[in-house]
């Protein structure tokens, strides 16, 4: 079996986000870029399965849609243990464009298991996995918290309200991965880091695809209101404020 892990190149989750150009672009000055945390968990699970089932998994490939500056992030995935990587040479504009590019590669290369993080930590679109499933006409399992292969059979679990659903499916399929798929992302080993540059990183040109959405501008979240203290004796006022102002009851 061949596993493909789709990885996004996102700002470190502790980044202080600033926008420029009339709030239409992220200020990337000083930003440290990382593998999207959900994608990193997906990659870790793929590698764990490969390690546990020597021979059952032929390869783990990572793919990213991005320009050359995403290559350090891709090489981090190679350092962690992916066997090879593909970069589609295109600045990702929206989920549809990304999914179109990924689908083209997957159609040609016959991957059996395709893993996507449930969302990207920057755009939080949560849509590439579902779009890919539609474009490729293969099943997808959302919010996957468990994935394993037992005697050639794929077993998945997905999160549902208050519990889990156990799912079996045929390959090829897409698992949209949620936290819980593995305990922690893998730390690359020293040899993995030093060997990352010698692993194949194939750069392919994109197919034509138009964005279906347009980013108008970003808005900062409203700053938190100041804390208001209500006298301990005045329960009525507290209830009224919670009801009318905070609208939580």
């Amino acid at each position: 079996m061949k596993i493909l892990v789709c990885i996004s190149h996102v700002p470190d989750t502790t980044t202080k986000i600033k926008f420029i150009n009339n709030n239409t672009a992220l200020d990337t000055a000083g930003v440290q870029w990382i593998i999207n945390p959900w994608d990193e968990l997906a990659l870790t699970r793929a590698l764990d399965i490969k390690d546990a089932q020597a021979g059952a998994i032929e390869s783990v490939t990572v793919i990213n849609v991005g320009l050359v500056e995403t290559e350090p992030t891709i090489r981090k995935a190679l350092a962690i243990g992916a066997d090879k990587a593909i970069r589609v040479n295109l600045e990702p504009k929206d989920s549809f464009v990304i999914a179109t590019q990924l689908a083209e590669v997957i159609k040609k290369d016959n991957f059996d298991i395709i893993l996507c993080g449930i969302e990207a930590a920057d755009g939080n679109g949560s849509s590439v996995g579902g779009m890919l499933s539609e474009m490729l006409d293969i099943p997808s399992v959302s919010a996957t918290t468990f994935l394993d292969i037992e005697n050639g059979q794929v077993k998945l679990q997905r999160e549902i309200d208050g519990g889990h659903e156990v799912i079996a499916t045929q390959t090829p399929f897409i698992a949209i991965v949620q936290k819980g798929i593995c305990k922690e992302p893998r730390i690359p080993s020293m040899r993995g880091i030093m060997g990352a540059r010698s692993k194949p990183l194939q750069v392919i040109e994109p197919v034509t695809a138009d964005s279906l959405t347009e980013l108008v501008n970003y808005e900062y979240p409203k700053s938190k209101a100041a804390c208001r203290k209500v006298d301990a004796e005045n329960v009525k006022e507290l209830v009224q404020l919670l009801h009318e102002e905070a609208k939580v009851i």
Partner: peptide, 14 residues
């Protein structure tokens, strides 16, 4: 270098 940053991050994470 890219490798040096990766090693620094790996050590930090560990």
């Amino acid at each position: 270098t890219e490798e040096q940053i990766m090693i620094q991050q790996a050590a930090k994470d560990f």
